[in-house]
Nucleic acid binder design. Structure first.
Lengths: 193, 193
DNA sequence: CTGATTTCTTGCCAAATGGCAAGCGGCAGG
DNA sequence: CCTGCCGCTTGCCATTTGGCAAGAAATCAG
């Protein structure tokens, strides 16, 4: 099984050795998602810790009016799951949906917990993933406050140009905190910021 | 020592029993901060896991222009530390400063890690704290995108009316993602949102 | 292949927010 | 005291962003 990407990911926090990564990766199971499939729906308890090896996923919530708000975008090399729902075993407020056909490796809550108990290095890794996600969200929050919409768009493009190929404009817009109309105008204005 | 608040906090995630809370709380040491003291400065490695028993603290970052942006506000019953710096042992990008005289209980990184190794229930607790903080930040991010500035202000007031007493307007404004001028106008407009 | 839907753009105007500067009032330190 | 800084407000106007609607373009499903 081509678990190389997964093994590299397991080593990415520095807590897990190459040998350990091979052993741990054996606990994951392969899963495919078709475009538009939901990995998680609001009301369910998130029970899949999903490492993406191929494809793009989007998480979103509904605001009081029922409008979808994109809360996250993820591609190969990232894990997706709803942190609060997964660890607290509470119903999720968010949806996670495949934007393209996807392939990845997953663990259930129970499997992850068993690994946590059995392997302290995997615990460390798990914490590292949480901390990384936390820091990324803080950075995004800060950018939302300090940068203009067009600057945030430019940065997203530089960091993840692949998104533009498969993610409808409106999803990117709500991720950036603006409307699709505004994003269209920002793109028209082009490089001149 | 009046560690009651701390013990209650330790029990708040459900992972730690009352008896365990008493034992664990003994590892914390009391610390006082005077108004304007820094618990952490940018460039330092966050090494204090600080549970607030009295007083208010503010965390902030500097944007490229050198303007302070309030990234967090915390009071009694909350812990403050810079997650990424603390766990990754990297220099912090943020400052944490006392807005009023403060009292609280703290652990160093080493002490916290020793407790993690010695006590699985404290590990669970630690994860719970991280997850809680993560969920709170996600909620704040979502509100920043979906709600108007005045709505965000009203909600902050309802949730933490005590802040208004000790936190200068400009700090609250940058926490909400607006200028102090705009916040002043929002307050003038009053209840009518 | 083709009709239907979704996605994207654009024009017009309104609403929200920012930038700057002046002014006021209180509080702190000399 | 009294003086100076700090915090807050306010007026004026510019900029950003949103709401709505129409139309063009791309994409999807049968």
């Amino acid at each position: 099984m081509p678990t190389l990407q997964l093994q590299q990911f397991l080593q990415s926090t520095g807590a897990i050795s190459a040998v350990q990564a091979v052993e741990i990766s054996a606990s994951f199971s392969l899963r495919h998602l078709s475009r538009h499939d939901f990995l998680l729906q609001a009301g369910q308890v998130s029970d899949t810790y999903f490492f993406i090896s191929r494809g793009l996923l989007r998480s979103f919530a509904l605001d009081p009016d029922g409008t979808e708000v994109t809360t996250g975008l993820a591609g190969p090399g990232q894990v997706v799951f709803e942190v609060a729902s997964f660890f607290n075993r509470t119903p999720s407020l968010e949806y996670i949906q495949a934007l393209t056909d996807c392939e990845g490796w997953c663990l259930s809550y129970q499997q992850l917990n068993e690994l946590f108990h059995a392997r302290s290095e995997f615990r460390e890794f798990g914490r590292g993933v949480l901390v990384r996600g936390f820091a990324a969200l803080k950075a995004r929050m800060l950018a939302t406050i300090t940068e203009s919409a067009s600057a945030r768009y430019e940065h997203l493009l530089q960091a993840h140009p692949e998104l533009l190929l498969h993610v409808p404009l409106k999803y990117i817009a709500s991720y950036l905190g603006i409307t699709d109309t505004s994003l269209s105008r920002i793109r028209k204005a082009g490089g001149k910021k």
